[in-house]
Write a protein that binds this DNA or RNA. Sequence first.
DNA 1: CGTCTTTGACCAGCGC
DNA 2: GCGCTGGTCAAAGACG
Length: 499
Amino acid sequence: MGLHVGRRKSGSEESVVDDGVSSNEVDHRETKAELALAKSEIGRLNEENKQLKNMLSRVTTNYNSLQMHVLTLMQQRNNHRGLGAPGHELNVDPEKKDQDGSQLLPRQFISLGTAASPDEPPPRSAGADMRGGDCSASPSNTDAAMPPPADYCAGKGNAATIGSKDVMPLPTFDHHHRRRRGGAHERDQRGSSPEDPPPHHVPQGWLPSKVPKFLPAKAPEPVPEAATMRKARVSVRARSEAAMISDGCQWRKYGQKMAKGNPCPRAYYRCTMAAGCPVRKQVQRCAEDTTVVITTYEGNHNHPLPPAAMPMASTTAAAASMLLSGSMPSADGSLMAGSNFLARAVLPCSSNVATISASAPFPTVTLDLTQPGPGAPQQQQPPPPPRPDPAQLQAALADAARPVALPQLFGQKLYDPSKLSAVQAAAGTAKADAGDTVSAAAVIASDPNFPAVLAAAIKSYIGASSSGGGADGSSGTVPPPASSGGDSSRNDKIGEQGS
DNA sequence: CGTCTTTGACCAGCGC
DNA sequence: GCGCTGGTCAAAGACG
């Protein structure tokens, strides 16, 4: 909030001296008057500044309390939903919700990290680390209590730029229920089922980065059918020449397969930033446009994320949360209202950026970063726009994510708004009013323009960092269209049909 | 030697 | 029931 008390324009051009006083004298007098005026102006603006600061403080306080209130309400609602019976589901009209939300908040943003987990601990207080339920966090084993290892970033890529103090919890979106797949029973007997977090304890917090191994699984926790929630996915379409967009996380490839109708293989990754992290992503090039990489995120991180991972994670978490909160089928089975609600809520002014697929089995939000949004400058696709310096952007993103001493929002520390503007500037999407923005998640709640801005920032970030082969610690590749031959010829029969 | 990627195999869900 | 498809596992090899 910069006070800019410029020297008042003397208007010498207009002040033609016609009373016989020399122009020098007039200038002198005017300068004195201007100085006095400027002084009083500064004093007045300082006072104003103080008042605004107080106002901001009050608004922030009110905002957080309101959010907690909404969060609590949503938590209750989702607990109902998670427990079960459709008939018991709270049938909240998304339209109404939107209205209500807008009454409460500038823009509704609700972290529903616990939505799907009836077995999950109740939501914690505002400052609490609100991770998803997949981790089955025990209160005594929290990330907050577990100092990150110094070599957390020992992995490849941008992680090296991240200090341990910079990691932060992420508002989670929970997709606790995973379809049992792939011979679960047999594998369970073998004792290896990383997708089923141990029922009572998962080593959390920071493990050395070189700990990709997943924990030996214990007996799978039986998931009652009533507790099964539809699993939200967030799909990010981004134009990238690199095989995989960089989102700041570390991923390990665990499979690749040819998908029907797409000559490009689909690669499967799981997050390796923490043992047992349930987050997975699928990376696939778009069949129609192979320059577009479609990254589908699924699950929620059960560990703090490095700042570089926050923009994407926050966006996807927000989108997924909104999807889960707004697109759950109501008792009458209608889903569209929720989808519309989500589209408006997540990307209120970027309807061309977000699309929602409610089709079974998983509702999916697609954030299309290949589409220029209103908050972002138009991006000519061919040829690609000049990219910001990857290091610079990376630093800017990391810098923007550095928490400042502000209240927390849904367990996530707010970011320095001024730093965020640096991101936007670096991304070529600078907005002068970026002071309103606080964090990826919070901004979605507060600034209707932000999603597009963030999307643009992510887009630029992706564009900048992906060309180098990934700053996410993974050198995983999405092979080019099946013409590449062996690499993309995936297993099973699918590999044959891929070509 | 530890970690990561590749890839053949396996399984569940779903449609016919 | 069968085939197709998506998703996952894990052994083997590559890599640093």
